[in-house]
């Protein structure tokens, strides 16, 4: 039995709002194994994105422990934190908001290679070309500005940047939610290929159970900051036990491609 890559226990984050204290994340615990995809699902305000921000140390928790690669992640500071951040990367929903839109693709990919001392200046253009090819983009794209390329290409660049530092875990916060369905499927396939080949684990944050059922091994369903239920993704989606799990499954748009929809036909 290997130890988990990420072990989160009792994670809690409270905010004061209008004299009242609200727990955005309330005693949440989960593990992620190397090479595994754990999905965090739940409606708006359930605490999904707060957990992502806590894991990235963008905000600090009020209580709880985060162990990453066997060490206490929450006590890291300065150079030690920077070094571990190379191993824990992030892809956001909107890469146009995450990057300087006027920066070139090469610049966006050069930053992590330089900051983390991964490649020398001479070596970096070759590494950038290799990263672009790794995510299915042409190396010719390096000179283009972020705002000039399509949304799908931008999200591939975001993934290339995330894998540039050879992470063991990538937090993906609604990373495919804004993409067209056909592009979304390609990006999910890319994530799966990278996971298989590099054994990267994903914390996949989404409100879309369809996407989760397609790529996650396990799921944690959150409601108002608390864990409502968790388990094997297929099992939870097929037979949700919690009220919020049932509501999420009921709300997912379903395509019935075989039956006749008399309601639709009767107007013609």
């Amino acid at each position: 039995m290997s130890s988990p890559l990420l072990a989160v226990s009792g994670l809690t984050k409270r905010y004061r709002r209008g004299g009242k204290t609200i727990a955005a994340v309330d005693d949440v615990s989960f593990d992620i194994e190397p090479g595994e995809t754990l999905a965090l699902a739940g409606p708006s305000g359930s605490g999904k994105s707060t957990i992502a921000r806590l894991l990235l140390r963008l905000i600090e928790p009020d209580a709880g422990r985060v162990e990453f690669e066997g060490g206490d992640f929450l006590s890291l500071n300065g150079a030690a934190l920077r070094a571990q951040r190379a191993r824990l990367q992030m892809v956001f929903q909107d890469p146009l908001a995450a990057f300087n839109p006027r920066a070139s693709v090469a610049r966006v990919l050069d930053d992590p290679l330089r900051i983390h001392g991964i490649a020398s200046r001479k070596e970096r253009p070759r590494r950038i070309a290799a990263l672009l090819e790794r995510v299915g983009l042409s190396a010719d794209l390096a000179g283009r500005a972020i705002h000039e390329i399509s949304g799908g290409q931008r999200q591939r660049v975001a993934i290339a940047r995330a894998i540039a530092t050879k992470p063991s875990l990538i937090v993906l916060d609604e990373a495919v939610s804004a993409l067209d369905v056909s592009v979304r499927r390609q990006i999910l396939q890319l994530l799966l290929d990278l996971q298989r080949e590099e054994r990267i684990a994903y914390l996949f944050i989404s409100h879309d159970l369809g996407v989760i059922s397609a790529i996650a091994h396990r799921v944690v369903i959150l409601d108002a900051g608390r864990t409502a239920e968790s388990g094997d993704a297929r099992a939870v989606i097929d037979a949700p036990q919690s009220a919020i799990g049932k509501a999420l499954v009921a709300a997912a748009p379903k395509l019935n491609r075989t039956s006749k929809d008399s309601d639709a036909a009767d107007r013609q």
Binding site: R185, A214, R234, I237
Partner: peptide
């Protein structure tokens, strides 16, 4: 047809090969 095939519903064929998944 392509749009319909790209839809990821709850009952969609998982992209993930569960049997070979590393756990």
């Amino acid at each position: 047809r392509a749009l319909l095939d790209a839809h990821l519903g709850l009952d969609a064929e998982p992209l993930l090969e569960r049997a070979g998944a590393s756990r």
